[in-house]
Each structure stands twice: as structure tokens, then as C-alpha cells.
Design a protein around this nucleic acid. Structure first.
Lengths: 340, 340
DNA sequence: ATGAAAGCGCTAACAT
DNA sequence: ATGTTAGCGCTTTCAT
């Protein structure tokens, strides 16, 4: 049955005008019971499904939310996306997802396509926080919610995780265990998460009067490989750190691999805390302590903010959420195990 | 600049008809160089972006591929989706993704929405392999490609992994190591992967004349919890197995957690192979041997098949791909470690 | 309670 | 090489 019935076919079969059919499929009321029944059975008989395209054309809205993430393969994002999707569906919105592989160029293309397709709003974790390349959205008056990473050059609603606080807690915990030589594997300093996590590290050291040692600050790029190399670098230091703080999940993985490689004994020769929970955390012995982000909540709040912005006529002020990460102490940073 | 310019605005500014503008934005040629330049600069000046909605309305195609997966949080799917998305974008298609949480009801809703939105094709890992609930797509003549799980009640292109072969290899390897009491943690037997992986297990036992012991066959549901419980059950057996084969990634995770809990020593007291590679595989000591599926390729082939079906007028026969999984031998099933 | 008709922004067939 | 125009399927205003 390759034939796609339209509202007109339904109208004919039910012997009414298309306007009346429209009223029924949109539950607008004002249609006589009997007429409605005739229409409904015509719809069923034909297997009519209304065209969202035509509807969008007329209504100037698609009920579609565009989602842009930098890397769908990073396990953090599927959890966030899952939160977004579920909440969005609840509210009658649907999502179109794209992953940019951290490329601002790809991101710009995607933005263009999202505009072409008339998305009603966008939730984005951008690959370039200046936001210049997604200015187009802003210009078109399409609501944006930035999650996990801020947009600098114009105002948008934002849902962030309190990175400074999260890494502060982690490093503080390490310090309270007696560590003084605490290394950090950093994320890119031109990203909010990367920079802020470093800031939290720095602040904790300052608060406890531990001088910052540049040699213990290794730059990474949030990818597994850089965690691996950073750990090697740290191991080769004359004054090896007694504790390592890794700025994200993927680098934590890399770090763990390096530790095994180097036979650098986790929990005995070196303590560890990582930003982001990882699947492996509870399998490694000792179990990994981590700072964990509320991924699902992140997605849900983003939808809520976007929803308000899409459906409120008046001007809303810029809203900013800062979610608290949670320090999960497990076994990789226990007291007294390490000779300091 | 909340104003959205249309093709007409461009035409006016460039002092041509909308037809000519249309020719330019679709690169159809037959436009004088000078005219084209005028149009292009009008487009830039206005910041015109053509409406995909209006275009779809006319063309009866959206260049959108709908993707339906049962659980985006299962790390297998982001990798598949990533393969799909990349290949699709190369071909000028875009993807709209939904996760059903293994619910055929949600799946049916999503199918309806996909049809409303006029997707040109669908790539699906269904939550109910009869396929009855997605018959609608088929009826509308919308091309479908089933991946990872087959559709039984009507014909669609299919990209599957050779599950029988994969688990056969795994179990065979275990047998060749001298194991006779090999347990399997099964997936749901009403899913292709669940059933086929059991079949491979059975066949390997038969081929090596090892009688199948019902006690060593534990039913799971592909979720972490069931892997955990299954392992406990196995441990409680009078005749404990000397090796375990787990039918998927999540159950492998559950199994590992149980092993730690029970202090049942992996690689010493019990060997292990799991279906699907998992992130933790190389962190656990001993490293986990696994059967690994080509996730990216799975997605890419699916797009290729779908693309052909969307763009070829004539009837194509049903195509079926069967990708070979790869046995990755690491350390969790070494010879001589276990007293058998 | 129902119908007629305009029009959303675009493409494509048909003029010129 | 360029313009005119008829829809695509729907919503919505205005009549009746």
C-alpha cells in the first residue's frame, strides 16, 4: 500500500471538509460527535498519518530539538542525551542528534543544517566556547541551551557542572590524606571544564599552602592517549608524585593503562582520583575514587530551560544552573598506604 | 535580527524571479554569471538559509534517516550510531535518533512519529523481532534496515553479526583449554542475539562431545543485574563450572562484580570469555578475553544498504550481511591455571 | 457545527 | 537565460 493518504482523502471519505478533519486531528473541539466518529473511522480505514512537514510549514515550528555533542562515543554523552531525550519526549518534542568529533567546523555545518530544518531549539556542548561559529542560531532567534561547556561571546541559558568545586574536593581529599606531591592531568585549557578543573586543583593547593609545582601539571586533551602519556611523563619525573588527579573519564582510562604498563602500583605507590565516574572504577583494584557528574539531571534541566524559552513569549533573563558533582570515595586514595 | 528571509526576499533584492534564485541555490546551472553573483550576494546580505521544511514539502523527501536503538546507554550503540551518522552525513543524509528502552510500545510510538516526519528510511535494532509493531513503516514503503537483530514477519535488509560463530569460537577456545564444565549466561531467548549465542555454545559442546548440563545454562536479560545474579547462582552450584561464557557486555560487567564479591578468582578458579568487548576488559587482572563485534562497520554497512534502497527505483532483493566477530584472546582463559 | 479559501516557502513544469 | 505559476498538505480566518 504505497499510497499515502492526505487530509483530503480523509475528508472525502468522511464526506466533510478538510477543515473539519483538521479540527478533529488537533482536538480543537466544536465538531459534532457523529461527524467526529465518521472522521475517525475514515482515518483508521485509510491508515492516515498527518504530515509533520506540512504542519510545520504552516505552523512555523517543528517540535524538534537539535542536540550537538562533541563525541557521542564518550560515555558521558549518551547518558546526558538519554536524559534529554526522555524529558523532551514527555513534552512532545523530538530530538535530532549530531556528534561533531570536537570539530568547530563540523559544528558550524550542523548548525546550518539544524536551521534549515527549522529546529525549535538547540542543546549544545560546543567544541569552541567562543560560540562565534554558532552565532547564526542566535541571530535567527533560535533558543540555545549550553550544557557542560559555556558560550562566551553571547548570552545563552547554561547548565554547567561545578567543576572548580568538584576538583577542589578531590584534591582536598588527597591533601587531607597527607599528599603533598599531587599531579594533575589537565584537559584543554581553552575549554571551561578543562580550565575550571585546573582552577579547583590550584585553589585546593593554595588553601593548604602547598606550592604549585609546574612539573606536576601535565596538559592533556581529554582523550585516552593523553592520559596515557601524561602518566608516563609523571612516572619519569625525578620527584614522582604520590597522587594523581585526572581531569576526565577518558584520560583516567589512559592513566590506568599506563599504570599497569609501568607497574606503578595504584593505591600503594600512587593514589588516584578522577573526574567522572567510569565503568572500570569498581573493577580495578583498588576501586577508583571519582568525582561524579549528574548526567541525567544535566539533560533534563537543559530541556526544561529550553522548553521555557521556546514557549514563553516575553524575554526571559539568562539562566545559569551549576550542578554539584559528587565525590565518591572508594579505594584508590586510602590513608597510610603510601609512603609519602 | 529575528526576521527570517525567504527565497522571495532574495529574489526581490537581486531583482530576479524566485525561480532563478532556486536554480542558484540548487546549482542547476543555466544562470548567467552576473545574475548568479547578484543572487549570491543578496543571499549573503540577508543571511538567507533555505527552509528544508518547504523543500521537503515539495520534494517529498526529507533526507532524514531515523535510527531506533533499544538502549543508547549500552556502549555498543553509541559506536554503531557513530558509524551510521558519519556515513550518512557523507551522503547528505541526517539522522534522528531515538532510544526505546527495550519497549516495543515506545518503539511503535517512535515509528509513528518518524512516519509523520517523513523520514526517508529507518535503521533499527528492534525491541521485538516479530516486527509486527513496525509493520507501519513497511506498509508506507519506507525502507528499513535491521541491524543486530532480525525482523521476522516481513522482509527487510539486514546487517547481523554472526553470533553463532562468535560464541562457538569462544566456547571452543575454552574447551581446547581443557574445560568441560562451561557455563553460559544467556541473553533473552526471544532475541536473535540471545538465542544464537546460546546455539553457538550448544554446538561447540556437541562437536566436542561434552554433554549439555542444564544447570550451567543460566537465563539472563542482557542487563547488568542478571549477569550478577547468574554468577552467584553458578557459584552456589555443587558442581561449580570452571569457565563462564557471558552473552553480552552488560552481563559481563555484572559477572565481574559478582566475582569480586564472591572472591571467586578469575583466571585461577574460573576462566572467562564474554561476548562484546568492554572498556574494563584490559583493566581487570587477568585481562578479559572477549568476542568483539565490528560496531562502526555495522553502522556503515547499514547506511550503505539503506542508501541504495532509498535511491534505487527498481526492486532490490532482500540483502543480508553477516559480519564476523573476532575472538580476542587475552588472559582470562589461560591454560593450566585452573585445576579442572 | 461546518465549509471555503488563503497561504506557509519552495520546486519544477511550462512559458517566453 | 529568466519568469510565471501550480501545487505539496496542512492550519486558520472568515463566512455561513
Amino acid at each position: 500500500m504505497e499510497f499515502k493518504p492526505t487530509i483530503e482523502d480523509v475528508a472525502k471519505l468522511a464526506k466533510v471538509s478538510i477543515a473539519t478533519v483538521s479540527r478533529v486531528i488537533n482536538n480543537q473541539g466544536g465538531v459534532r460527535k457523529a461527524t467526529e466518529e465518521r472522521i475517525v473511522s475514515a482515518i483508521n480505514e485509510l491508515g492516515y498519518i498527518r504530515s509533520a512537514v506540512a504542519r510545520s510549514m504552516k505552523r512555523k515550528e517543528t517540535h524538534t530539538i537539535g542536540i550537538i555533542v562533541p563525541d557521542i562515543k564518550n560515555p558521558f554523552f549518551p547518558f546526558v542525551v538519554s536524559g534529554i531525550e526522555q524529558k523532551a519526549r514527555e513534552k512532545g518534542y523530538y530530538t535530532i542528534l549530531s556528534s561533531t568529533n570536537e570539530s568547530p567546523i563540523v559544528e558550524e555545518e550542523i548548525v546550518k543544517i539544524f536551521i534549515e530544518r527549522g529546529v525549535d531549539g538547540v542543546i549544545i556542548t560546543t567544541a569552541n566556547e567562543t560560540g562565534d561559529h554558532i552565532k547564526l542560531l542566535h541571530d535567527q532567534g533560535i533558543p540555545i541551551v549550553a550544557i557542560d561547556r559555556a558560550i562566551k561571546n553571547f548570552e545563552v541559558d547554561t547548565v554547567l557542572v561545578d567543576n572548580v568545586n568538584g576538583s577542589y574536593q578531590a584534591v582536598q581529599h588527597l591533601i587531607l590524606q597527607g599528599h603533598k606531591k599531587i599531579a594533575i592531568i589537565c584537559g584543554p585549557q581553552n575549554t571551561t571544564p578543562g580550565h575550571e578543573r585546573f582552577l579547583g586543583y590550584k585553589k585546593a593547593l593554595e588553601d593548604y599552602n602547598i606550592p604549585l609545582d609546574d612539573k606536576l601539571v601535565i596538559q592533556g586533551d581529554f582523550m585516552e592517549g593523553s592520559g596515557f602519556h601524561a602518566t608516563h611523563e609523571l612516572f619519569d619525573l625525578e620527584a614522582r608524585p604520590t597522587a594523581i588527579f585526572s581531569s576526565n573519564n577518558l584520560m583516567t582510562i589512559g592513566c590506568m593503562k599506563a599504570l599497569v604498563d609501568l607497574d606503578w602500583k595504584l593505591g600503594e605507590e600512587v593514589s588516584f582520583i578522577g573526574f567522572d565516574d567510569v565503568e572500570i572504577a569498581t573493577f580495578i583494584k583498588p576501586k577508583l575514587s571519582v568525582v561524579s557528574r549528574p548526567m541525567n539531571t544535566l539533560g533534563e534541566i537543559a530541556v526544561q530551560l529550553l522548553y521555557e524559552r521556546m514557549n514563553v513569549k516575553g524575554n526571559l533573563p539568562k539562566r545559569q544552573y551549576l550542578l554539584s558533582p559528587e565525590l565518591k570515595i572508594r579505594e584508590s586514595c586510602q590513608l597510610n598506604k603510601i609512603k609519602i
